[in-house]
Amino acid sequence: MPRTKTISDASVFATVRQMLATGGDKAVSFAKVAAATGLAAPTLVQRFGSRDGMVRAARQAAWEALEAQTADAIAKTADKGPQALLKAIGPVDAAAIAADLRDPDLAQRAAAWRATLESALSLRLGTGPKARETAALLFAVWQGQAIWDATGASGFRLKDAVKRLT
């Protein structure tokens, strides 16, 4: 009979994502994650098989959370404009997304997420090619803003970009 998990996979994944954000791929090892979570390194090996398996599982879990957050935001802002949708999703870790693009499966997931979000933005902007083009530009502006916000640099306000593009 397997033992009950005292520390959830979600907690392990949060630790792994934090390590990735602060130190990159090289910052994650079974020993470091074990020290940070209080789990034994062999327990992590048993759960995830390999260090790469643990990192990949953490990244997959982050995408699942972002996809759920996006679906929820789309539903909650169905009668609102594009700015309300992007604000409802909240800040995203653009650096993590960029790192995930090295994995073909995660890159495909990122492309599907982007298409979903651009489609939802487009519906809020009207119909036709102009709405789709504006939605793509808003997505790019929003992601660019996320990168600059992470550096602490002052940037533009999203509502200003929405006004200029619509």
Rank of each mutant, 00 (worst) to 15 (best):
L44N: 02
A95R: 12
Q46I: 05
R132S: 11
A73N: 06
A65L: 08
L101Y: 03
Q108M: 12
A35N: 10
A68S: 15
A68Y: 03
P42H: 13
A140R: 14
A31Y: 03
D93S: 11
G49Y: 02
A135F: 06
L86E: 00
A99L: 12
A146M: 11
D105M: 15
A120G: 06
K130S: 13
K80P: 06
L39A: 08
V45C: 07
A57S: 04
L44R: 00
A41W: 03
R51N: 03
T134E: 04
L138R: 12
A36Y: 01
V92M: 14
L125V: 10
A96W: 02
G49Q: 03
A146S: 14
Q69A: 15
I147G: 09
G53D: 03
A34H: 02
K32E: 10
V55S: 09
A136M: 05
R47I: 01
K32L: 12
R51I: 02
R109D: 10
D93C: 08
A36Q: 02
D52F: 10
Q108N: 06
A107E: 07
G53C: 08
W63S: 08
Q46W: 09
A107H: 03
A31Q: 10
A96N: 07
G49R: 05
Q46P: 00
A71Q: 10
V55L: 10
R132Y: 04
S119A: 15
M54V: 05
V45P: 01
G128N: 14
A73L: 08
P82F: 09
A41F: 05
A98G: 08
I97E: 13
Q83L: 14
A135P: 02
K130P: 00
K32N: 15
A84V: 02
F139L: 12
P104C: 13
Q69R: 15
A99W: 06
A75N: 11
